[in-house]
């Protein structure tokens, strides 16, 4: 009897879990999963509707998820974010495209995991930029503001990728005009020196000869002995610093799917 009761409870739990997971798959689960309880209900609703607006704007091409937790259960933020995305059935289209922002309050870490088209739309540089803004908000305790920034920046980057066909990348880095100006002025200074002194040299033609080349008897040069003796050779190796050429780096998650992304602390 006792065993039967236990079994029925166990069964119902399994059924419930199965049911919820099925529904979760069908509805793509919560877009804002505030497990760490950082947001008020109204804030959560507002963020969720913002996300849905963007998802609809791009015709269910990209999923956008915000997850907050108090613990990543011993996993790295990257693994936890990837698995959370994979095992909760997030992502649209055949590639399961989308991105997820994980905030781990326990370790004060954030991580963004991308998949499918999300990998291509969000480059390492793009994720760093989002992360910088988000980490600022998280650090100051403005969680809702940080998530709003995440959502609007995601919109911005997806929009750039969809319209230009090129993601927001290293080349879109805001330029440091002071540095550019200094470099330009340096080039200008060198050019001015070269031009002016070349012109000035036209005015000074009374100069002594340096050699006697004009007076070499034709064919008089004879080399009686010429040797090129090899002495030794040495080899040095220098590690090539990977030049930051932009793009997105990827890895494989525990479920075997390919993810992009990056993270940091706040």
């Amino acid at each position: 009897m006792k065993i039967k009761k236990l079994f029925s409870v166990f069964l119902s739990v399994i059924i419930c879990a199965a049911l919820t997971s099925v529904t979760a798959f069908a509805e793509n689960a919560d877009k804002v999963a505030d497990n760490a309880d950082l947001l008020s209900d109204s804030e959560e609703k507002r963020l969720e509707s913002d996300i849905m607006d963007i998802i609809e704007k791009y015709n269910y091409g990209y999923d956008i998820v915000v997850v907050t937790v108090n613990s990543t259960q011993g996993k790295s933020p990257e693994a936890f974010a990837d698995d959370y995305y994979d095992y909760n059935g997030y992502g649209y289209d055949s590639e399961g495209s989308g991105l997820l922002l994980l905030v781990d309050m326990g370790n004060r870490k954030w991580h963004i995991s991308t998949k499918g088209k999300g990998i291509r739309a969000f480059t390492d540089y793009g994720i760093d930029c989002i992360g910088e803004t988000v980490a600022d908000g998280l650090g100051s305790g403005d969680y809702c503001g940080a998530f709003s920034d995440f959502i609007s920046l995601s919109d911005k980057y997806i929009n750039k990728y969809e319209t230009d066909g090129k993601p927001y990348d290293i080349g879109d880095k805001p330029k440091n005009y002071a540095v550019i100006f200094l470099i330009s002025a340096g080039i200008g200074l060198i050019a001015a020196f070269i031009v002016c002194f070349a012109m000035k040299s036209q005015l000074k033609t009374a100069v002594r000869q340096v050699n006697a080349r004009s007076y070499i008897s034709k064919g008089s040069m004879n080399i009686k002995y010429a040797r090129d003796i090899f002495l030794y050779r040495n080899v040095t190796a220098a590690k090539i610093e990977s030049s930051d050429g932009g793009g997105s780096s990827t890895h494989t998650s525990s479920s075997g799917s390919t993810h992009g992304g990056g993270g940091g602390s706040f």
Binding site: Y215, S220, K224, Y225, A226, F230, L231, V235, A237
Partner: peptide, 16 residues
């Protein structure tokens, strides 16, 4: 980077 070192000798004449 491989640097090979050589000793070069030239002996001869030239007229001016």
């Amino acid at each position: 980077t491989e640097t090979s070192h050589f000793l070069i000798v030239r002996n001869g004449g030239i007229s001016f």
